[in-house]
Design a protein around this nucleic acid. Structure first.
Lengths: 148, 148
DNA sequence: GTAGCTGAGTTCGAAAAACGAACGCAAGGA
DNA sequence: TCCTTGCGTTCGTTTTTCGAACTCAGCTAC
């Protein structure tokens, strides 16, 4: 199966993995969650080539992860890229990456931002839990079976 | 910043995003979490080219996400690729992708596997929570500030 | 010994994707 | 009218990926 055709892979983990697994897409989403919204700003902060940036934004628009929203800049109407609800719900994916990065890839020089809960000021972390008993789960606590 | 140099990006979300954001890497991890361990099996199930597969496996070995473990096959010593603890802890990332895929990308034809908690049989989902009060958090509940 | 098989790569020419500099274009301002 | 700005598009070059063929080591059968 060539990479491109994973878009039609009959698997709810495979399709997102293929979508977000294209070069630049995860980094683009990181920028978006950090507040970047305009073409020029993506281009400047990531040094991605303009043509690839156009392509990735279009893919995310088509998938409904982003939407183009008009706004006013000195009287002119322009558009910015913003997360849809579908896009905002990728937050756990980003936080899981960050939680992992904090534990396994952090260095002295990291300038990373701090995240905290608006209401109580606490820290933020991703976890996997059982929908029934609420226990926190690791890969070893979970059984995989083919769909019946 | 060219894509390759994101490996040295001073950000605990950026570096993992760049690492897992290379083409094939997320799909490769999906296979690994589903139990694939051998070169030939990756190659057969994903139809990735052999040279790229070699490269991606080597990157994950170098990063300490995978390890090569000897095993015996009909008297012969061979090696298989297995997750390290660092690798296993990517589980929340995979589950976050799947939780998102279930909600936003599922179709009638999906043949996806079922996951359940070994102890109680319950379902599995990823979430983000506050380390202090334990509340479940969305992007809007979290404040981003530059590190002081 | 040697011929064959198998898993795990390596090599290499062709195709696809990414790069980056230049160009296009529409809206507003001088 | 001409200039600037934001947002792309184009196009020739470089880098990645592809895929088929090749290599190699360890074993089995003869």
């Amino acid at each position: 199966m060539p990479y491109a055709s994973f878009a039609s892979m009959p698997c709810t983990l495979g399709r997102p993995a293929a979508l977000l697994g294209e070069r630049w897409t995860l980094l683009l989403l990181r920028q978006i969650f950090l507040g970047t919204r305009r073409f020029e700003d993506f281009q400047a902060t990531m040094e991605i080539s303009r043509s690839v940036l156009t392509d990735r934004l279009n893919v995310l628009l088509q998938e409904g992860v982003l939407k183009r929203v008009p706004y006013h800049d000195e009287g002119r109407t322009r558009h910015e890229y913003r997360l849809t609800e579908k896009g905002r719900e990728l937050y756990p994916v980003m936080m899981a990456l960050r939680t992992w990065g904090e534990k396994w890839m952090s260095t002295e020089e990291d300038e990373s931002f701090h995240l905290h809960h608006r209401d109580c000021g606490g820290g933020v972390r991703a976890k996997v839990e059982c929908t029934d008993c609420g226990a926190e789960l690791s890969a070893r606590d979970v059984q995989v079976t083919a769909r019946s």
